[in-house]
Amino acid sequence: MNHTAAHGVAEPLEHRSTNIPDRKILMWAFLGSDVMFFGALIASYVVYKGRSLTGPYPAEILDIPLTTISTFVLLMSSFLMVLALHALRENDIPRFRLWTFGVCLFGAIFLGFQVYEFRAFFQEGLSLQGNLFGSTFFLLTGTHGVHVSIGVLWLMSLLIGSYLRPIIRKDALNLEIAGLYWHFVDIVWIVIFTVVYLVEFV
């Protein structure tokens, strides 16, 4: 499909020594740095694990069945994400819109679970300043939740944009980059789900 570059709508890849679009490199560099960012938050959760002087303690309030469902929802949103990108590359616009809408919807469902969870925990007495578990838990999962929210808004803007102006080949690159971000949010949750939730109940 590289011949479409001749029409001037695609990025002229030939001019780059790496043969990779700049913005895609930029996104991967950002994701590499974001790994370190989450590494710091996960490390702070891990080193303060089991050191809260007062409750509520993680084993008292974490809910594995509920979180397994929200984890599943986020994983499936990643699946819809690759389907959306595939459809756009195949020029199947209705499917691209359907799958992208699905990603946004699943992302919103995940956020809904998180809001529900935060509310329930707060009512149990867990707070940012109450104990070490609360501080490190809300900081870690809250930062992840902000990432998910940004991803949902980003993908929604691409979806809405597809109705407002004609779709060009560059849109596939835009969607691919947004998709990389979305998958990254998913893999961060894979780690959080294991480190924060599952290991607590072994």
């Binding site: 991967w28 590499g32 989450f38 590494g39 710091a40 996960i42 490390a43 891990v46």
Partner: peptide
């Protein structure tokens, strides 16, 4: 790019 960030992040933890 991603792997170096990953190595540093995991190493930090």
């Amino acid at each position: 790019l991603f792997g170096s960030g990953l190595v540093i992040g995991v190493g930090m933890v």
